[in-house]
Amino acid sequence: MIDDGSDDEFGAYAHEEILQAVVRHLLTTADLDQLCDDADLPQLTHDDGTPVTIDSARVYRDAQVMTLDRGVWLELSDGSVFGLTVHIGRRPRGEVTLRRR
């Protein structure tokens, strides 16, 4: 992932890898009910009224999802599991470089 400081790991898949990492980060740094509030959406709740939470958000590679796609594998506290796949609809027109902050 992004942690090791190497830009070589992104290669031709920089857009997918970075978007995958951003989605994973977003979904692991905020509670699902707070994300729903921020987006003005209804909250998912269990039968007892407690909010459904994100138990796990892992990139496909770390979740051992058998695909060549990039994406995030979500496991929720209600037992549901979702895969959010990042697909490229069009490559950038010009050269794109990575800049570390």
Rank of each mutant, 00 (worst) to 15 (best):
L27N: 01
Q20E: 05
V52L: 02
Q43M: 14
L44P: 00
Q64N: 15
V52W: 01
R99Y: 04
I54K: 00
Y13H: 14
L44W: 01
E75W: 01
R101P: 15
I18H: 01
R58S: 08
L76N: 04
T85S: 06
I54M: 02
L98P: 14
G49Y: 10
P42I: 13
D8K: 08
D3A: 08
G5W: 03
L19H: 05
H15D: 09
G11W: 13
P51A: 15
V86F: 03
L68E: 04
R93M: 10
L35T: 01
A12V: 09
I88Q: 12
G79S: 06
I88N: 12
R24S: 05
G11E: 11
P42G: 14
A21N: 07
D4T: 11
E16W: 00
F82N: 07
P51Q: 12
L41K: 11
V59L: 10
D8I: 06
V86W: 02
D33C: 01
A14M: 02
I88K: 12
E95R: 15
R90Q: 08
V23C: 08
R61P: 03
R58E: 13
R91N: 08
L32E: 09
V65W: 01
D69K: 05
Q43A: 15
G94K: 11
G79F: 06
T28Q: 09
T53R: 04
E95Q: 15
V23S: 09
D7F: 13
H15F: 07
L35Y: 08
S77V: 02
M1D: 15
L41N: 14
S56P: 04
D40A: 09
M1H: 14
R100M: 13
R70A: 02
E75R: 03
H25N: 11
E17H: 02
A63Q: 06
V86S: 03
D47F: 07
R58F: 13
V59K: 10
E16R: 00
V86N: 00
T50A: 08
P51K: 15
H15Y: 07
R100V: 14
D69S: 09
T45M: 04
L68D: 07
Q20L: 03
L74Q: 00
T45Y: 04
D4A: 11
A12D: 10
C36L: 10
G49A: 11
R93L: 15
D38K: 07
C36F: 14
D3K: 04
A39G: 12
A21D: 07
D38M: 12
D69M: 10
D3T: 08
I18D: 03
R100I: 14
A12R: 10
D48R: 14
T50G: 08
V86C: 11
G5L: 03
I18L: 04
